[in-house]
Design a binder for these strands. Structure first.
Length: 564
DNA sequence: AGGTCCGTTGCCAAG
DNA sequence: CCTTGGCAACGGACC
């Protein structure tokens, strides 16, 4: 029975993923003899268990209960990461470098994290075993090939992961492999939280807070990690690849300044917490979205996303800082509050059917959004003609990161604020480009910003002109990410179409030639004081010219005289 | 049950 | 420079 299933799965694995290995194995006839001797009975070699530690997220040694368990009483631990071409293969037709689903910045972040994980494993006498392929095929193959007794991986609540893991768990159980899959990506298990709430998914932050107690403490890192054996039984393992190895060549884009890895995550955590006053005063809504040399937040999100940093360690370290200070901010705005927002969206995402769609999503307002690829492309490519919006979108493409409030501004602009395009389209762009892209949090925030769920104050619109200006009146952020506007006087930087032609010429930036005119948009929900154009019968309002308030206009007129 | 409260992060103008 | 009030296509939780 075991031999049968091995043969069957083995065939597809070798033929589809590793043809050379398949040939080798077939030629020397080892597959047959191996399958006969294959057994998953413990003690088949008079030693401890053979554990496969499957890394997906949770790319760390600290606070990693799955890794810890795999090491307990093991003779060999096989630390594995499977690089799936579905996510990683270059897509030359994509609008920016990367695969169909993942931008090059996040791929790079992942590879750096794997490299760091490998280094940290090597410090413990082990190493990371990297394979290419579809994990649903590869992992069961490895279980058989290496006669694994125990499969350990971190519990993952995303729908894609739930399906994948259910399949693998089923096969593992069939093979007699014990599966250990602890919760360590989140502070709480969403299943427990929902059960605590009588089976109802909490849909407000406050309701969620009432359900949370003290999160579990981090577990210790393993003191020693039993190494995998030298002989990997013909399994083709590769070193952690570089971007070029995956087919990403001739990249001249500006790269994300945030490198991946557990080591960097812990360094950044220390750096973020060293200023206790900053930690205790932290209030997210007061942050400056245009600060980019020194961001206004911790930028720990990508490390949490990949699990380079444990949220439980972060939480514990935060509480330690709070306990040493009389006064500190509180949820929802505090740093602890940010971690709990993450938990909130994980819980809502787990408990809501079709959380990532409008249709079939019971908490999502059904809105007749526009399916306009021209608007979407202009937004995605930073070509809307609104410098604040475009600069943020360029930062997203180049760095894979932008401040939370910049995300709000551009998400509002694409959906209810200006373009009235499907939030799912914007979600896809974020999901591909953000280095901290996280299924539950990303979808939750797009539901929020499009006023589809959680939040419903339609008339609260971020102005594409004044919101950025409030934080950065000189336009340094805009000028950095949109160098075409670098010589535009600051008085026109947020509304360059209002600059007189003489000014545009002097700045080497003719609006409509060097930088686009602001897009005419269909708008259904801009507050009255911002509206221009003729309201239509369906309540939408067609914009042909952007708006500018009268006081802003007067200010420009005055500055224009002074400047020319 | 329907009224009231209130919700992580708006904008503008007036004082 | 603040803060404040008005705006009003909101809706879930709670009493």
């Amino acid at each position: 029975m075991v031999a049968e299933s091995f043969r069957c799965v083995g065939h597809s694995f070798f033929v589809k993923s590793l043809p050379s290995a398949a040939l080798r194995t077939a030629n020397c006839g080892r597959r047959r003899s191996f399958s006969v001797s294959c057994s998953n009975e413990k003690g088949n070699n008079n030693m401890g268990k053979r554990s496969l530690m499957w890394f997906r997220k949770g790319l760390r040694l600290h606070d990693n209960p799955a890794l810890l368990r795999s090491c307990e009483g093991a003779s060999h631990v096989y630390p594995v990461f499977v690089l799936d071409p579905w996510f990683l293969a270059p897509d030359p037709t994509a609008p920016s470098p990367g695969s169909k689903l993942v931008g090059v910045n996040r791929i790079r972040f992942l590879l750096q994290s794997l490299e760091d994980l490998d280094e940290n494993l090597r410090k413990h006498g082990s190493r990371l075993l990297v394979l290419h392929g579809n994990p649903t095929t590869v992992i069961p193959e490895l279980l058989m090939k290496w006669q694994i007794n125990e499969l350990c991986f971190e519990f993952d609540t995303e729908p894609y992961a739930q399906d994948r893991d259910a399949d693998i768990k089923k096969l593992a159980t069939k093979y007699g492999v014990e599966v250990f899959s602890p919760v360590s990506h989140t502070l709480f298990n969403p299943i427990d939280t929902i059960r605590k709430n009588g089976g109802q998914t909490p849909l407000t932050y406050q309701a969620f807070l009432k359900l949370t107690g003290k999160p579990p403490l981090p577990v210790t890192a393993p003191l020693q990690i039993p190494s995998p054996p030298e002989d990997l039984n013909d399994v083709h393992v590769v070193p952690v690849p570089k971007l070029e190895d995956l087919g990403y060549v001739n990249l001249d884009e500006e790269f994300s300044p945030h490198p991946g890895g557990e080591t960097e995550a812990l360094r950044r955590l220390d750096k973020s917490l060293v200023n206790q006053k900053w930690v205790c005063d932290f209030e997210k809504p007061k942050g400056n979205p245009t600060a980019f040399i020194e961001p206004a937040t911790t930028v720990l999100s990508p490390y949490l996303k990949f699990g380079c940093l444990s949220c439980r360690l972060f939480h514990q370290r935060l509480l330690a800082v709070y306990s040493q200070n009389k006064k500190h901010s509180s949820p929802p705005v505090s740093l602890e509050g940010q971690l709990l927002w993450r938990e909130f969206f994980y819980t809502a995402g787990y408990g809501t059917p079709n959380f990532d769609r409008m249709l079939g999503n019971p908490i999502c307002k059904q809105i007749p959004w526009k399916d306009d690829d021209r608007l979407l492309a202009a937004w995605r490519d930073g070509q809307t003609g609104y410098p604040w919006i475009d600069a943020a979108m360029v930062q997203l493409r180049k760095w894979g990161w932008m401040h939370h409030l910049a995300r709000h501004a551009v998400a509002c602009f694409l959906t209810r604020g200006d373009m009235f395009v499907y939030w799912e389209k914007g979600r896809d762009v974020f999901d591909r480009l953000l280095i901290d892209s996280d299924w539950a949090i990303n979808n939750g925030n797009w539901l929020w910003l499009s006023a589809s769920a959680f939040f419903h104050q339609y008339h609260r619109i971020y102005s594409p002109v004044t919101f950025g200006k409030k934080y950065d009146p000189d336009g340094l952020y805009v000028k950095h990410f949109l160098p075409v506007l670098k010589d535009m006087p600051k008085y026109y930087i947020y509304e360059p179409w209002t600059a007189p032609l003489a000014v545009q010429k002097k700045a080497n930036c003719i609006i409509g030639v060097d930088y686009p005119r602001p897009m005419a948009v269909l708008n259904s929900c801009r507050p009255l004081h911002c509206q221009q154009g003729m309201p239509r019968e369906d309540g939408h309002c067609l914009f042909t010219e952007p708006f500018a308030s009268s006081t802003v206009r007067k200010q420009y007129d005055a500055q224009e005289k002074a400047w020319c």
